[in-house]
């Protein structure tokens, strides 16, 4: 049994989640403006996976093959990967900061990525190379995060409060810089940036998946190994140190991993809000605070959530697709308010 998962019971949570995710991926691949029969969709995928034709019920239809394999599958898998990344990052941030409302945005990932994106668009790089925007966005987010870390680390210590305040300051600064660039940008550039900043999965291709699969997959994998440390950190800084957690180093490693994972997600999809907030929250309510279960569940749950939201974004208004970031926000914001009201009613100050 893998040591990451606390006990056998956990499989009863993770296995159904994984099966549901698989089903949703399949469904989302088949359903769209042009509906592909589910059986054909499966056939196409199986054929592409290299299953010999003799084992398939029918031969893959070439007209479906293009839709499924070149358009929908990368997009749905993109939703899967990005949803997992954002939810895991949110889970870790909330555990790390011991605050149920924390998300990776606190360490400047989105604002930095935004600034990188706007530079790439305004300077015209985005128009010449499809790689430019993701690269600029991820560099921007890593620069912003790096500045925040440098501000928060003093004498071998990292105050979480300092981190949050530094994050706010740097985030605001990069936000203002983005606005400044937009002031001088053309209408086209502004429209392009606005579109990016709403968060979308239109442009996810196999190439962009290749770009981020390793950092996201590797990041999530490494974060899983820190689940026990995250649990102990919930005891409080001194308690954790007293049982042998190197608090400073652990926090730093976790924050670096979270920013790498989030930056990778943001660079291909733009900022998609509330996934990192709502998914960990629901899971914590259902499963309790144990990160050894919570982190893998967040990966599966976040992926499923974003696949569904993206499906809604594609289908809700018929021919007119909407950005998936709009859907997640429309779902997430009311849930956020619900949490807020509930805690106010219980007399808890978040």
């Amino acid at each position: 049994m893998t040591p990451v998962i606390p006990d056998r019971q956990a499989w009863w949570v993770l296995l159904p989640l994984a099966v549901a995710l698989g089903g949703l991926v399949l469904l989302a691949t088949a359903v769209g403006s042009v509906s592909v029969p589910l059986g054909d969709a499966v056939t196409v995928i199986l054929a592409r996976l290299g299953v010999p034709a003799t084992f398939l019920a029918s031969l893959p239809d070439p007209k479906w093959d293009a839709i499924i394999f070149l358009v929908r599958l990368p997009r749905v898998l993109g939703a899967t990967v990005i949803g997992a990344a954002l939810a895991v990052a949110g889970t870790v941030m909330q555990g790390l900061l011991r605050n149920p409302l924390a998300d990776p945005g606190l360490i400047g990932v989105s604002s930095g990525a935004g600034f990188g994106a706007v530079l790439s668009i305004a300077l015209g790089f985005a128009a010449t190379s499809s790689w430019s925007l993701p690269v600029f966005a991820s560099v921007g987010s890593l620069v912003a995060t790096g500045i925040i870390f440098l501000l928060a680390i003093r004498a071998g210590k990292m105050g979480l409060f300092t981190l949050i305040l530094a994050g706010m300051a740097v985030g605001t600064f990069f936000g203002a810089s983005t606005s400044l660039v937009l002031t001088f940008a053309s209408h086209d550039s502004i429209a392009q940036f606005l579109f990016w900043s709403m968060g979308n999965l239109y442009n996810v291709r196999w190439e962009s998946l290749q770009l981020v699969a390793l950092p996201i997959g590797g990041g999530i994998f490494l974060l899983l190994w820190f689940a026990r440390d995250l649990n102990v950190l919930l005891l409080g800084e001194e308690e954790a140190q007293a049982v042998g957690v190197d608090v400073f180093r652990t926090r730093l490693v976790l924050l670096v991993l979270v920013s790498a994972v989030t930056a990778s997600a943001v660079c291909i999809s733009g900022p998609i809000s509330f996934v990192g907030l709502v998914v960990p929250h629901i899971l914590r309510l259902l499963l309790g605070p144990n990160h050894r279960l919570l982190v893998p569940a967040a990966a599966l749950g976040g992926a499923a959530f974003l696949v569904v939201c993206d499906l809604v974004a594609r289908l809700a208004l018929g021919a007119q697709e909407i950005n998936v970031g709009i859907v997640t926000a429309l779902v997430g914001a009311p849930y956020f308010v619900f949490l807020l009201l509930r805690s106010v009613k219980r007399g808890i100050d978040l």
């Binding site: 011991r98 649990n231 919930l234 005891l235 409080g236 001194e238 308690e239 007293a242 049982v243 309790g288 605070p289 144990n290």
Partner: peptide, 13 residues
């Protein structure tokens, strides 16, 4: 091993 004066344990472990 240290047992601190107060623990700020708010999680439902």
């Amino acid at each position: 091993a240290l047992m601190p004066q107060s623990t700020t344990l708010t999680s439902a472990f």
